[in-house]
Computed example of a mutant assay.
Amino acid sequence: MLNIVIFGPPGSGKGTQSEKIIAKYGLAHISTGDILRQEIKEETELGKQAKSYIDQGELVPDATIIDMLEKKLETLNNEQGVIFDGFPRTVDQAGALKKMLQKRGEDVNVMLNLEVGREELIQRLLKRGEVSGRSDDNLETIEKRIHVYEEQTSPVIEFYKAEGSYHAIPGEGSIDEIFERISNAIDSVK
């Protein structure tokens, strides 16, 4: 089993690179963002709660995300591994993921941290907002999301450094250049 955490601030290219990793390595994809957007679209109770946090640029509470992820993991069978996209976002979530995987006799093999400068992130997200129409891709919310990431999420890096699975990936350049860096990191742990 190959379990990968793809990490980075909003707009760093996690979704784009996840698709390429899935295609190359045959992994299942768990995107908490996709799951939350689906819940919001279906107007479920979870979706309504999540939307109130997301619209303010805040993180959805750990307990909600962890429960949702555990249910999703239980639906996977005979996968070659999983790429976790958008999870974990806090140290508590990272610890919960470690416990979930240990129950399955697994662990996170590699944590890929996409490093992108603040101005580049803002430009990418504004462009994505124009193209996709995502309501959370406006300047005020983007700046708040980046701030929340820096304050609450970046400590997860230290967790994975201590675990020995951390790999910094320069996240600027062409999609293929970035993917080559990612592939080299993954191949080094396989």
Rank of each mutant, 00 (worst) to 15 (best):
T16R: 07
L59T: 04
G13E: 12
K41H: 13
G164H: 01
G133V: 15
L114I: 13
N3D: 09
P170T: 04
D34Q: 10
L125C: 03
P61H: 09
A94S: 03
L114N: 12
K127N: 15
M100F: 14
I66N: 09
Q38K: 14
V131E: 15
A185K: 01
L139R: 06
L73C: 06
T16V: 12
G47N: 11
E74T: 10
T153S: 15
E70V: 06
H29N: 13
Q80I: 05
M1R: 13
V91E: 09
I30L: 15
D107I: 12
Q152K: 14
S12Y: 08
M1V: 15
I178A: 01
S188M: 00
T75A: 09
S188R: 00
E42P: 00
I169N: 00
T16S: 04
A162L: 08
S165I: 02
L97M: 10
E150N: 12
I22F: 09
E163C: 02
I178N: 00
E106K: 15
Q38D: 14
E58K: 13
Q152A: 09
R128F: 08
G95R: 13
D34E: 14
E19S: 12
V108Q: 11
M100W: 10
K144Q: 11
G57T: 10
I142M: 04
P88A: 12
L27T: 08
K103D: 11
T153A: 06
E19K: 15
E58Y: 04
T153E: 04
R134S: 12
I40A: 02
K72Y: 08
T64M: 11
E163H: 07
K71P: 03
G47P: 08
Q56P: 01
G171S: 03
P61G: 02
L27Q: 02
R37N: 07
F87R: 10
G133M: 13
K144T: 09
E140Y: 01
L46Q: 05
G129N: 04
Q123I: 12
A96K: 15
I175Y: 01
I6G: 02
K98W: 05
R37M: 02
K71T: 08
A162W: 04
E150F: 02
E115W: 06
M68L: 15
G86R: 11
G33I: 09
K161L: 00
A63M: 10
I4Y: 13
K20P: 03
E140L: 03
D136T: 08
I35Y: 05
V148G: 05
Y53R: 02
S12R: 01
D187M: 00
F84N: 04
K24F: 05
V91S: 04
I142A: 05
T44Y: 11
G164R: 01
G133A: 12
K190M: 04
R145N: 10
E150K: 05
I186K: 00
L125M: 11
I66M: 06
E120I: 05
I35A: 09
E115I: 14
G33C: 10
V60W: 06
